[in-house]
């Protein structure tokens, strides 16, 4: 189980760095949703299914939708 935890942790750190450093805003949001999805895996490992189902529906679905809708309202991606 520790190997899976370390693997997920490394992927989470990579996606967090990419979410901050990405040039285009849309890439950043997609990477953020990937971070949420990986944290769902971590919650399942730590025996917390309630939190996992909430994070899956909120983090991977609604957070990305809200951010992309706000981005589209200010006129899309600018460099």
């Amino acid at each position: 189980m520790t190997i899976a935890t370390i693997f997920v942790g490394i992927l989470m750190i990579i996606s967090a760095i990419y979410a901050i450093e990405a040039k285009k805003m849309l890439d950043s949001f997609i990477s953020l949703s990937l971070l949420s999805l990986l944290s769902v895996f971590l919650f399942v490992i730590m025996k917390a299914p309630d939190v996992a189902i909430t994070e899956a529906s909120v983090g991977a679905g609604l957070t990305t939708a809200v951010l992309i809708l706000a981005l589209r309202r200010i006129g899309g991606d600018e460099e």
């Binding site: 979410a19 901050i20 805003m25 950043s28 953020l32 944290s39 983090g59 957070t63 951010l67 981005l71």
Partner: peptide, 14 residues
């Protein structure tokens, strides 16, 4: 960029 602030705050939240 201000959007990146929001992204960073969400990372800290998670």
């Amino acid at each position: 960029n201000l959007f990146k602030f929001l992204v960073s705050l969400t990372i800290i939240d998670t």
